[in-house]
C-alpha cells in the first residue's frame, strides 16, 4: 500500500464504476498498473466489494431499519469476538460494530415490518446466552448514508456562465 493505492481507493469509494483506463489517466498510471494494483487490493481484502448506495424509500420499499444497542458479558477466553461472530452471521444484521460507551455492540438490522424486526431481536439476539440487554431504535428517516445526503440535492447553485 502506497500513496497511489490510497488515491485509487479514494476514487473507487466515490465511484466504484469508474473504468480502469480513466482511472489511469486521472492518476497518471497505465491501465495495466491500475489493474495490477486493484487486483492486489482485492486479493488482500482491502477492497471488499463494489456496491451502490440506494435510497430504498424512494424505490418504494417500506421495510424497517433499526439501530440495536446490545450489552454483552464478554467471555473470558474470547472477549466479544465469538458472540459478535454469531450475531454477524444473521443476514438481517446489515452492520455490526463493537463500540465504547454505555453499551457494547451496535447493530443495524433490517426487516420487512416492525413486527419482524422486533421478533428477530427478541428471538434471535436477546436470547443469546451472553447478551444482557438490548435496546431497539426504529429508524424514522435516513438523512445520510455512506457519505450521500439523501434528503438534499447536493451541489452548489452557480451562475451558468461566468468569467
Amino acid at each position: 500500500m502506497d500513496a497511489k493505492d490510497r488515491e485509487i481507493l479514494r476514487v473507487l469509494e466515490s465511484d466504484s464504476r469508474i473504468g480502469h483506463e480513466d482511472l489511469g489517466t486521472m492518476l497518471n498510471l497505465s491501465k495495466a498498473e491500475i489493474i495490477k494494483r486493484i487486483s492486489a487490493m482485492e486479493k488482500t481484502g482491502v477492497i471488499r466489494k463494489y456496491t451502490a448506495v440506494i435510497d430504498w424509500k424512494k424505490a418504494g420499499d417500506d421495510g424497517v431499519t433499526a439501530v440495536v444497542e446490545v450489552k454483552v458479558s464478554p467471555e473470558s477466553e474470547f472477549g466479544y469476538d465469538r458472540i459478535a461472530d454469531r450475531v454477524a452471521r444473521f443476514p438481517e444484521v446489515k452492520s455490526l460494530r463493537l463500540v465504547t460507551g454505555s453499551y457494547d455492540l451496535q447493530l443495524i438490522v433490517c426487516g420487512r415490518t416492525m413486527q419482524e424486526v422486533s421478533e428477530f431481536v427478541s428471538g434471535q439476539i436477546a436470547s443469546l446466552e451472553s447478551i444482557r440487554e438490548t435496546v431497539t431504535h426504529i429508524v424514522m428517516k435516513t438523512y445520510k448514508e455512506y457519505g450521500c445526503e439523501l434528503q438534499r440535492s447536493e451541489g452548489v447553485e452557480r451562475l451558468p456562465y461566468s468569467f
Partner: peptide, 26 residues
C-alpha cells in the same frame, strides 16, 4: 462579452456548461 452567451444559454435545454469560472464544491 458574456451577455450574448448568457442570453443564449437561458433559451436552451440539456446544457453542460464549461463556462463557469468558479468551483463546483460547496
Amino acid at each position: 462579452g458574456i451577455r450574448k452567451f448568457f442570453d443564449l444559454l437561458l433559451t436552451m435545454n440539456d446544457v453542460i456548461s464549461l463556462g463557469v469560472g468558479e468551483p463546483d464544491f460547496n
